[in-house]
């Protein structure tokens, strides 16, 4: 007879193939045994789980999960079903989970981005320098520019509209947050405006999404508490 419990990994986590005839309590023991065996490999892992080979009631599924999480260091995020619709939903859920993670972690980039340069980040990013016109910063999380933002910033690149773009000097050509694009105002046609602007005092600003539009506002305590 083949093994009562087989572990197979897939894109999102682990597929448990279970013996369909074995007594449930006995099976539970086997599952725990299998996970214990691979404890070193799974240590602290976050994963999705799916079941195959045997029809389980919801209660049984929960008991399996509890057994695994109580006795090993494996974290199970969700249970996956094998039909396509569920899979799609789970995929979205997992991506959202990753997205949340990306909002919490970040990296630094030191230097000025010049025209034609693109900085593409999986997590949030802090740029220590300017973003010149024609340069682009793309991040799945937030973007903070400790300098002037004069190019293009694209926060929440996988569709997350809860992200923000902040800069010490906010003068972007375009800002995109999630799927929403905001572009700079056109310069007034009247000929009076000089190309060399007089130096004006600039304050740090932050761009956020409100009611499907991008708003750029000065950074205040109240605003920071809301994002």
């Amino acid at each position: 007879m083949s093994k009562p419990v087989v572990l197979k990994s897939n894109k999102y986590g682990i597929n448990l193939i279970l013996d369909k005839d074995m007594d449930f309590e006995e099976l539970l023991g086997c599952i725990l045994e299998r996970f214990k065996e691979s404890e070193g490999f799974f240590k602290g892992a976050k994963m999705a789980i799916s079941f195959d080979g045997r029809k389980l009631t919801q209660e049984e599924e929960f008991r399996i999960i509890d057994t695994i999480t109580d006795n090993t260091s494996v974290n199970i995020i969700c249970i996956l079903d094998n039909d396509a619709l569920r899979e799609e939903l789970t995929r979205q859920k997992i991506e959202r989970f990753e997205e949340e993670c990306s909002g919490k972690t970040g990296e630094f980039y030191k230097g000025t981005l010049r025209s034609g340069q693109v900085l593409d980040c999986e997590s949030s990013v802090v740029v220590l320098g300017d973003i010149n016109p024609g340069a682009k910063v793309i991040s799945k999380g937030n973007i903070v520019v400790l300098g002037a933002l004069k190019g293009i910033a694209y926060a929440g690149a996988n569709g997350n509209e809860q992200t923000f773009v902040a800069a010490l000097e906010m003068d972007p050509i375009q800002i995109k947050i999630g799927e929403i694009i905001g572009r700079s105002a056109d310069k007034p046609a009247a000929g009076k405006k000089r190309i060399r602007k007089a130096k004006v005092v600039v304050e740090p600003q932050v761009a956020i999404v409100k009611d499907g539009n991008i708003y750029i506002e000065p950074i205040t305590k109240g605003l920071l508490n809301n994002i």
Partner: peptide, 8 residues
């Protein structure tokens, strides 16, 4: 052309 900010 003054259309830089519209490029997607």
């Amino acid at each position: 052309m003054g259309l830089e900010n519209r490029i997607v």
